[in-house]
């Protein structure tokens, strides 16, 4: 059974916009006066990376990208919790 993935032109600008936003978040990552500000910026970057991975799955026609996005979401959650523990002085 051959599959026709419809060529839809508007996925590309959406991913391009998300990549620009990831670039913009890194301004706060560099500037942020406190470590907690940087952690918040990393959290925002993680969310945007997950969103763009789900869109890239449609562009590259690979469903495995969505699975990678799920695993990335869970791993970045664990790493953020560890950063938070470290910042709160519990480690």
């Amino acid at each position: 059974m051959t599959v026709i993935w419809e060529p839809l032109p508007y996925w590309y600008p959406a991913v391009a916009a998300l990549v620009v936003l990831i670039g913009a978040s890194t301004i706060r990552l560099v500037k942020g006066p406190t470590p907690a500000d940087r952690a918040v910026a990393v959290d925002a970057v993680n969310t945007l990376v997950i969103a763009s991975m789900v869109l890239l799955a449609v562009i590259y026609r690979q469903i495995i990208f969505v699975d990678i996005a799920i695993v990335y979401a869970v791993l970045s959650y664990v790493s953020t919790l560890y950063i938070a523990k470290y910042l709160g002085g519990e480690m």
Partner: peptide, 13 residues
């Protein structure tokens, strides 16, 4: 959950 954890840690620190 992670934003709650970060806010709590920031207020603690």
């Amino acid at each position: 959950v992670s934003s709650h954890a970060l806010a709590r840690a920031a207020h603690k620190s």
